[in-house]
Design a protein around this nucleic acid. Structure first.
Lengths: 233, 233
DNA sequence: GGCGCGCATCAAGAACTCATAAAGATGGCC
DNA sequence: GGCCATCTTTATGAGTTCTTGATGCGCGCC
């Protein structure tokens, strides 16, 4: 990820006035701005330009802001600040839980916005990992396209199978406990159903591994959970 | 740090009412609270208890909140959320630039606070990387990945073996008594079963030491307990 | 030297966890 | 309504891990 002197910020906002206001404020403070008027355009630009931060207005004409947040979070951890005219607590909670890093209610001070941008960038530069395409031997997982390839051939995964793989990819190299996996994929109520995991890990191994009974990628950590191997460097 | 089921939150706040309010709200939502009334006490507790998140009131009697933020940031990246009665933009900017991750103005909704706490913890658990890798000669213990390497090769440990190693690593250099080890790993009921320790220490030595009968890393302190050597500096 | 004590080692069965296959349940879609 | 893919549930055997008791060693003390 380019950590240039002038960070690239993607602004997704439909109001012209607001766009102009932010364009002026941000570029005056050393940010490079790219702009989108619709959610669709915004998501395309996010993928093509790989910005270092996204400012997202919740009130877009074509798609709900929550939806945009969730879709972005499927493949990228880029800092995402939501700005919105809606100040209801419920809106904030939903946006934050959907994956936003911060939530600002209009009208807000430019100074505060800039400070919150600095916080997000500061944190991101300390982290900066994970490309949206994960490769390990024969296996390729493209979080953006939502596509899994084995030996170049596309493999079809069911929704739950995909969620599991995506989670494992996002934390590749780490052990994810049964509880963590179950909570993220099935929800907090099912965090005791370890049998689900056994069944699904079996299915995934059949789809992803060349020798499912001797897993190379998807390894069991007995008594703890599962782990996706990292590509050996 | 341990992503336990109940994250430990440190609250630094001088108003009794506010403390009670937050204590109730947070513990009802599965957080373990530790409380400080003054900045001095807060910083001590932050160091001694290693909380997973800090809630800091700006208006403390003994020290300015900004000062506290800066001092904390000198040695820890723990998520830090500032709550304050002052809603001036200038205050927010200063706190955020001093190192706070978020800033909430009183009065705020509990729901929003909880959501922002979730955001901070979510990010922290995804980031945590890079810190805690213990190295001692041939031996490497990565607590974040839950991985143990000997001479660069991964070694598989059973849950109990790993718990023991993790405990020893966390207290590397110090002697852990039989009782301490047994209580932490097997639970308070088994704190007399020193035989367990003998068996497991033996297994660990076979897995970790090059010459298990002459332990270099995992040393016995006769009559007391066991100790993991510190890397000689 | 004989004895007691704490420690290390070994081995075997009990208890638990995992993998796998396959049957039953659900829900969308024509 | 019936089909299909998917998800849930159950059953079973294989595989690990934990516990437990037996045995041997070394050291200090009588």
């Amino acid at each position: 990820m380019s950590k240039a002197a002038n960070p690239v910020v993607l602004l997704i906002e439909d109001e012209r006035q607001m766009r102009r206001f932010l364009r002026v404020s941000l570029s005056a403070n050393g940010y490079q701005l790219i702009e989108a008027e619709t959610a669709a355009e915004g998501m395309t630009l996010a993928a093509s330009h790989n910005p270092e931060l996204i400012l997202l207005d919740l009130g877009l004409p074509d798609l709900d802001g929550l939806e945009v947040t969730q879709r972005l979070r499927e493949w990228t951890q880029v800092p995402l600040i939501v700005i919105s005219a809606r100040g209801q607590e419920e809106d904030k909670i939903k946006a934050l839980d959907a994956g936003a890093d911060d939530y600002l209610t209009k009208p807000f001070g430019v100074g505060e916005l800039l400070a919150r941008i600095r916080v997000s960038l500061r944190r991101a530069s300390a982290t900066d990992d994970g490309q949206p395409v994960f490769t390990l031997g024969d296996l390729k997982v493209d979080l953006f396209r939502r596509q899994v390839l084995v030996g170049g051939k596309e493999v079809h995964l069911t929704p739950i199978e995909y969620k599991l793989v995506a989670l494992l990819v996002k934390h590749a190299g780490r052990v994810l406990t049964h509880r963590q996996l179950l909570r993220e994929v099935w929800g907090p109520h099912h965090s005791e159903q370890t049998q689900y995991l056994r069944v699904y890990m079996g299915q995934l191994r059949h789809k992803l591994e060349s020798n499912p009974s001797r897993p190379q990628y998807l390894v069991t950590e007995p008594g703890v959970g599962y782990r996706l191997r990292l590509p050996s460097p």
